[in-house]
Simulated scan of single mutants.
Amino acid sequence: MFLAMNRFRIAPGQEEAFVPHWRKRNSYLSEVPGFVSFNLLRGDTTAERTLFASHTVWESEQAFAAWTQSDAFRKAHMAAGQSPRDFYLGPPQLELFEAVL
């Protein structure tokens, strides 16, 4: 199993707009072989930001890599440019994990 997470630092006061924005997105993940599941996670809040993470589970690292080269990936990320920029405090931070247990 392989996990990919994008961590987002969201501006204070933007949280309630950020979640529905993600809910409306079409990720096209269900079209990709090896995709297992997706969650949008909300983390802690500080005076500076609220932490969110998109969390995808894949059958393998190869399945994730194939997703990044797929038409589904391109379609999903074309719409990402339509996100309001005032949501984000900088670019997302990609973190990749291989399940070991």
Score class of each variant (00 low, 15 high):
Arg49Leu: 06
Asp44Trp: 02
Asp71Thr: 12
Arg25Ser: 11
Thr46Asn: 03
His55Ile: 02
Asn26Asp: 14
Asn26Thr: 15
Ser60Ala: 13
Trp67His: 02
Leu29His: 12
Phe35Arg: 08
Leu51Glu: 14
Thr68Asn: 09
Ala72Phe: 02
Glu61Met: 12
Ala72Met: 03
Leu41Glu: 05
Ser27Pro: 07
Pro33Ile: 02
Ser27Cys: 05
Val36Arg: 11
Thr46Trp: 04
Leu51Phe: 06
Trp58Pro: 02
Arg74Leu: 03
Arg42Cys: 05
Lys75Gly: 02
Thr50Asp: 04
Glu59Met: 01
Tyr28His: 15
Arg42Leu: 01
Ala53Ser: 13
Glu59Lys: 15
Thr45Ala: 12
Ser54Ile: 04
Arg49Thr: 11
Val32Asp: 06
Ala47Phe: 00
Val32Met: 15
Leu41Met: 10
Val32Thr: 12
Arg74Asn: 08
Arg49Cys: 12
Lys24Cys: 06
His55Asp: 00
Ser70Pro: 03
Glu61Phe: 12
Lys75Gln: 09
Phe38Gln: 09
Lys24Ser: 11
Arg74Trp: 04
Val32Cys: 10
Thr56Leu: 02
Val36Asp: 00
Arg49Val: 08
Ala47Tyr: 09
Phe35Leu: 07
Ser27Phe: 12
Ser70Tyr: 05
Gln69Ala: 13
Phe38Gly: 01
Gly34Ile: 02
Ser60His: 11
Thr46Asp: 03
Tyr28Asn: 10
Asn39Tyr: 10
Val36Leu: 11
Asp44Gln: 14
Thr68Lys: 13
Thr46Pro: 02
Val32Phe: 07
Ser37Ile: 03
Lys24Glu: 13
Ser60Asp: 11
Arg42Trp: 05
Ser54Thr: 15
Phe73His: 15
Trp58Phe: 07
Lys24Trp: 04
Leu40Glu: 08
Ala66His: 07
Gly43Asn: 07
Ser27Asn: 14
Val57Ala: 05
Arg42Ser: 05
Val32Ala: 09
Glu48Leu: 11
Glu31His: 06
Asn26Tyr: 01
Thr45Ser: 14
His55Phe: 15
Thr56Lys: 01
Thr50Ile: 08
Tyr28Glu: 04
Arg23His: 03
Ser70Phe: 06
Phe73Glu: 08
Ser30Lys: 15
Thr45Lys: 15
Val57Lys: 12
Ala53Leu: 10
Ser60Val: 09
Ser27Gly: 05
Phe52Ser: 08
Leu41Gly: 06
Leu29Glu: 00
Phe35Asn: 05
Trp67Thr: 00
Leu41Ala: 07
Ser37Glu: 11
Ser30Phe: 07
Thr45Arg: 15
Thr50His: 07
Ala53Ile: 00
Gly34Tyr: 04
Ala63Gly: 08
Leu51Cys: 09
Phe64Ile: 07
Asn26Ala: 07
Glu48Met: 05
Glu31Asn: 01
Leu51Lys: 05
Ala53Lys: 09
Gln62Asn: 12
Trp67Leu: 03
Val57His: 10
Ser54Asp: 11
Ser27Val: 00
Gln62Asp: 13
His55Met: 07
Gln62Cys: 10
Arg23Val: 08
Glu31Asp: 14
Gly34Asp: 04
Thr50Gly: 08
Arg49Tyr: 14
Gly34Lys: 09
Lys75Ile: 00
Asn39Asp: 13
Arg49Gln: 15
Ser70Glu: 04
His55Ala: 01
Ser30Gln: 14
Ser70Val: 08
Gly43Tyr: 00
Gly34His: 09
Phe64Trp: 15
